[in-house]
Design a binder for these strands. Sequence first.
RNA 1: GCGGGCGUGGCGGAAUUGGCAGACGCGCCGGACUUAGGAUCCGGUGACUUCGGUCGUAAGGGUUCAACUCCCUUCGUCCGCACCA
Length: 832
Amino acid sequence: MIDKYSPQEIEKKWQEKWEADNAYKTDIDNSKPKYYALEMFPYPSGNLHMGHVRNYSIGDVVARYKTMAGYNVLHPMGFDAFGMPAENAAISHGVKPSDWTFSNIKNMIRQLKSMGLAYDWDREVETCKADYYRWTQWLFELFYKRGLAYKKEASVNWCDNCGTVLANEQVIDGHCWRCDSEVQKKKLAQWFFKITDYADELLADLDKLPGWPNRVKTMQENWIGRSEGCEFSFEVEGHSEKIPVYTTRPDTIFGVTFVVLAAEHPLVDKLIAGQPNEEAVRKFVNDAKNLSDVERTSAESEKLGIFTGAYAINPVNGKKVPIWVVNYVVYEYGTGAVMAVPAHDERDFMFATKYNLEKILVIDNPEQPIKLEEMTNAYIDAGVLINSGEFNGMGNEKAKSAIIDWLEKHNIGTRKVNYRLRDWLISRQRYWGAPIPVIYCDKCGEQLVPEEDLPVLLPEDVEFKQGALSPLSTSKSFNECKCPKCGGHAHRETDTMDTFICSSWYYFRYADPHNDKLPFDRDKVNYWNPVDQYIGGIEHAILHLLYSRFFTKVLRDAKMLDFDEPFTNLMTQGMVIKGYTDKDGNYVKAKMSKSLGNVVSPEEIIEKYGADTARLFILFASPVDRDLDWSDEGVQGSFRFLNRVWRIIDIFSEAIKKGNTKYDVSTLNDEEVALRRTLHKTIKKVTEDLRDRFAFNTAISTLMELVNAMHVFQNKPINPNLALEVGSALLKMLAPFVPHIAEELWSHLFEGSVHKQSWVEFDAAAIVEDEVEVVLQINGKVRDRVKVPANLDKAALEQAALDLPRARELITGKTIVKVIAVPNKLVNIVVK
RNA sequence: GCGGGCGUGGCGGAAUUGGCAGACGCGCCGGACUUAGGAUCCGGUGACUUCGGUCGUAAGGGUUCAACUCCCUUCGUCCGCACCA
């Protein structure tokens, strides 16, 4: 008799044993195929939340299953440990960011270990440690040497609340991704990574990722925003400057009736100098610049503009058109100036109507000719060119290309591909990050810190204050330095790097975490990487996942590794949500959050029911990519199931100990044959669910059915050989989901660890049924069921159906139109 | 506005290739055991029904012998994008 199921005791026991045995230590082993399972590492906020528990439970099942299935599995964990909250703790509580971070990490490791996750902790990385950020800095220098890191003054996103700038990817609807406060524009000299150099490949290689959700690929596609068109210039009457414009609609070029400039366009000043409306334009420009990004980029906001007084010349037909400054042109995209064709562009149409500007129709609808006077909208569909000189009569798609050819031939313009993607702004005016390893010499200018001087360590003599300058600038010991080139007086860059840089390469470091010569060894990374299965939240669809793809391509070009993409397969898990009653008394479901008071603490659940129950519930309640509805009753149901497993193994244990692994299955009675059939069907289904679909919820439900089938024998004797076969298979299949209870029960019955066992194979012969139940349908409606020999052919099946009394009864007096027989499934008799 | 996902019992969900809708779990109902049951075990549980059946996968239509599954229209919901020329 085995004791009562007591998760608190057995979980602690096995966690200690696994740790003492180094059970999950991984090394290169060329005798097996490798498999790299990875979950997005957490920010060390101090406590695990249910989203983490879900993420890591999924990853652990994948890792444990693949191990049992014969793979050499790498499954590491670490911490994305630089970031603002640590610094905020310093500002508000006077704690050192490092102390705050390391004590949080300590607590989270304890919590992770209490979940029974199969990590190789020897490979843990913490991005805030000098032996990691040394290589983050080294990689910055690599990017710099490859011309991919540069400093420039630009209008950048500034979050006042966080006291730092943000990359475009980190601005969501004009708000800071972290604190949600409104982002402002500021002109600052900042460091950028030239991700735009890889825009084309980042877009094209999405096709190499069949294992990624389409949703994520579409989001990246939109973000990169490739468009094809051409760039050409307008001459300005009475000025030597030209206005370059970018358009995707060269087919409408003869319909240009005005040219619009963004408020920031440098030509504006020159064009208005001495013009009668100079002051009015200046005021308009200043007003536009003072608007927040939210207001400026909203598609709904009113399109406003003002005439500069200057005119441009359309290079294709010499037409003189007015130049306006408007609030709807994005300066950072294209050339910051646009040719306006009101007849064929919605915005230009609205604008021209509002300000009484000319409209010229240049594309006509061949089915139903358009009358300019009757137009209430721009005509943006396909058509045939009119009013376009030598191109009249040409289809507009063809004309796009023909007109670009013409522009190129006459040296007026060129074909051009444009991207919405901008370079990645990586400077942060914060302390708790990797210092940018650059020195500014009074004489020699910008210099990289020599490689042998890395890491540039974070100083401790800093003041933490909110402000526009990094706290590093308050450190004397940090700031002042010698120029590495001339030895003269110099000072350090005081900005740190965006923490997304730290997380753009950590999955390579896991392959070689203790290397002190390089970020990682090329052979080791080529062995383990790319990650076979990456698991995390959809919120990183662009941010982390795009940056990581960029890094991988740069490191490939630097010959540090030999593949193109970092993550072969990506799984995006849904959120954990929970219903609560709002102030109006309505029951609503929402993401767990402190402010709503619907948070369930993982630690409490694990204390009460054990990690196995928590894991089982989370995996069973919902498919991984969907939101998971937390249910306290559901958790109890999972706990109940584990008790049921415990009891039935206990009941079977005497028989199991007497059983032999090899036996003659013909000695089994009918009920035993049925149980054995259920077992092998279960093995087949669970294997397919884990191997092909990551359908953990259905795998678990199938295991529940097996346990239910075993209960048929709770009060009657069972063949010991079958008991052994079923019992051991059940424990092996449960092992990836609920590692502690599976190990505990295994240890009562067998030698060694259940987690070192090979995955179970199903016996196809055991699944074969002699008889199957087929359905009799009359006109598609189920009218009877009948048992027939399995695999009965169509003709015999059809006859068997027609012979049924029920069929005869319903057919009499009617004509049989057709009989459809599907072996092992059904017979449908169509009558009139 | 554009693009995409989703919509199945009281609830979470299953149905993998067009072939028995509702597996499994929660909840609920009944029974057994019991001094007791918020333990355990067994059974029932889509709706309506004249007990023959009829209806039923957001709504409406279509294709098919057969549709949760394919096609069209509409509604709801969630997500992404949105002055990018």
